[in-house]
Design a protein around this nucleic acid. Structure first.
Length: 554
RNA sequence: GCGCCUGUAGCUCAGCUGGACAGAGCAACGGACUUCUAAUCCGUAGGUUGCAGGUUCGAGUCCUGCCAGGCGCGCCA
């Protein structure tokens, strides 16, 4: 609808220019919005205000000219008004809003799906937590956002690949190996000291137990270095299985798991460096090998290979991102914890060094989560081993509530996650508010079924019976759903969908309390059933895009 | 010291990427269940958008400088 109206206005402006009424050859981008106040119409544009400087005419005059040339061939406009300083307000005919019901009926679950992706291949990389311990709540937020974004992009005709990058190389693996090895020795009755830098959580001892059960005393017989390395992979594998289990329980499923170790095994790191060297972007200084990231906006150059010959973590990342491109992804989306924000410029620079546009790599920074219980912070330091895992949180508050809470806020604002609040099954908890709207509608349909009410074919229903202001308002909101999904995809902001859902649910609950859907008037009942059925469908698909269930009974 | 994010009602947050009088929910107060689920609804009250400037027809939104909170600034991963 919005698009059609935008067309009409553009046509009108073109006509004005042709007729010499206006002189702007280039029209600024046309912005059409839904005014907050109803008496400002269904849609409004500020185009006349924007054009006023170039036209040398007062804005209301420009607006008047545009309105005079507007040809509404399909007869969708009820009236147009020039408001305030020069807004053009459009009031649409009621029939326009009815068409959304037909569209929802026709498209079913595809209603809300857009085309802006044009089939482009996009990779969404998220969580990518080191396999050195279970996932904690912070990872949960990243997981919820990454998964929801993937679903949103899919709904907009992107071909999405969800990937988890496993950081299974480097010193943290070594520390994991040492930590487990020491617990292993301890469990076998040896005297050991457990240093501070080792991972402290109970899960380390549990892995050591498993190692004993599965491998016995095998690790005692190798040289210590070898044992540590080997027990590190044993531990990493075990932890990774745990992470997969946690994610499974949270309803997140990846299309691919990419191992850093594989990058080295396939020599992709040296090859990536070689590639950049050929472009003259790599140089040697102080015995180390550097990438000229500063040529692409980074504050300084970065080391790829240290003076001691070891490659850096950054080098792996360079190779990994090259691999992403080699696999044919056109857009790369990385969901990162905000503590990694300092790496954004160097990663963007890397992509540019590989000859890509900066916009190919989009990085969503997710701010930290503070876990609260009744307003008091819950400690969660990994080191001390007293952290709260994602698993614990999901078990305590449930998958749906956890997801909704993670998705409710803008990624770049810090999140206080209150466990007690998330558990409460009351108005304070918006998850239930939305789900309840869905369940209520399902209940209406059960009642209709009981009473033997049948929905006739769409064209046999008299939609003009839906003429209450509340009904038109609901229809307008339904119409806006595809725009919300699209905006969400463009801005990479999933929180718009929970907010949309809360608004829609609120309108429905009001309507439900004020009027009856099922009444003795058969035709009215049928029309209203059609309306609430459409609402139900949209709540369902919006929840779906968030990875949240839509229960039929509560 | 430098950089990134945040600052909006008592609390938790929206604000459609510059629009009309700044919006919800919670908490507070007062009402609504013989009728499709009261996990709901209706009403009342609540504001100098951190502060000070600037840009323009118009600023919560953009720019500059402060203030406050969070997070980063390794040849660590």
């Amino acid at each position: 609808m919005k698009k059609a109206l935008t067309e009409l206005i553009s046509d009108s402006i073109r006509r004005c220019v042709d007729k010499g009424l206006l002189r702007s050859r280039e029209t600024p981008p046309l912005i059409l919005e839904s005014p907050k106040e109803k008496y400002h119409g269904d849609y409004a544009t500020n185009i006349a205000l924007v054009m006023t400087a170039r036209e040398g005419k007062p804005p209301r005059e420009v607006a008047r000219i545009i309105v005079s040339q507007l040809e509404d061939e399909d007869g969708v406009i009820e009236k147009m008004e020039i408001g305030g300083p020069g807004f053009i307000n459009f009031y649409l005919k009621e029939k326009v809003w009815y068409s959304v019901l037909e569209e929802i009926g026709r498209k079913g679950e595809d209603f809300g799906k857009g085309k802006i992706g044009e089939g482009r291949r996009v990779q969404v990389e998220f969580i990518s937590a080191n396999p050195t311990g279970p996932l904690h709540v912070g990872h949960g937020r990243g997981a919820a956002i990454g998964d929801a974004l993937a679903r949103i992009l899919e709904a907009c005709d992107y071909r999405v690949f969800k990937e988890y990058y496993i950081n299974d190389v480097g010193s943290q693996m070594n520390i994991l190996g040492q930590s487990v090895f020491l617990r292993y020795l301890h469990a076998l009755g040896k005297e050991v000291e457990f240093p501070d830098y080792c991972y402290q959580g109970d899960y380390i001892a549990e892995i050591a137990e498993k190692a004993i059960n599965e491998r016995g005393e095998e690790y005692l017989h190798y040289p210590q270095e070898e044992s540590i390395q080997s027990i590190a992979s044993f531990g990493a594998n075990d932890i990774l299985r745990g992470i997969q289990g946690d994610l499974d329980q949270f309803g997140v499923h990846f299309d691919g798991w990419f191992s850093e170790k594989e990058l080295y095994r396939e020599e992709k790191v040296p090859r990536a460096i070689e590639d950049l060297k050929k472009k003259g972007l790599v140089y040697e200084k102080d015995g180390a090998l550097w990438l000229k990231t500063s040529h692409y906006g980074d504050e300084k150059d970065r080391v790829l290979v240290k003076a001691n010959g070891e490659t850096t973590y950054f080098a792996s990342d360079v190779a990994y991102h090259k691999d992403k491109l080699d696999r044919g992804f056109e857009v790369l989306i990385n969901i990162w914890g905000a503590d990694h924000h300092g790496y954004v410029p160097r990663m963007k620079a890397t992509l540019m060094a590989m000859g890509k546009d900066e916009a190919v790599l989009k990085i969503v920074l997710v701010q930290l989560v503070s876990l609260m219980r009744d307003g008091k912070p819950v400690a969660m330091s990994t080191r001390a081993g007293e952290f709260t895992t994602l698993r614990n949180v999901v078990e305590e508050v449930g998958r749906d509530a956890a997801r909704f809470f993670f998705l409710m806020r803008r990624p770049d604002s810090q999140l206080d996650f209150d466990l007690e609040l998330a558990k409460r099954q009351s108005a304070e908890n918006p998850v239930y508010y939305v789900q309840y709207a869905h369940a209520r509608i399902c209940s209406i349909f059960r009642e209709a079924l009981n009473k033997g009410i049948v929905l006739p074919r769409f064209k046999d229903i008299d939609l003009h019976l839906l003429n209450l202001p509340e009904e038109l308002d609901l229809l307008k909101h339904l119409t806006a759903y595809p725009e919300v999904v699209e905006a969400s995809a463009i801005t990479l902001e999933p929180h718009r969908i929970p907010f949309y859902l809360m608004e829609l649910s609120s309108l429905f609950h009001s309507y439900y309390n004020k009027y009856r859907v099922i009444s003795s008037e058969v035709e009215l009942t049928q029309a209203r059933l059609l309306l609430v059925g459409a609402i139900k469908g949209i709540i369902k698909s919006a929840l779906d895009v968030l990875g949240i269930s839509a229960p039929e009974k509560m």
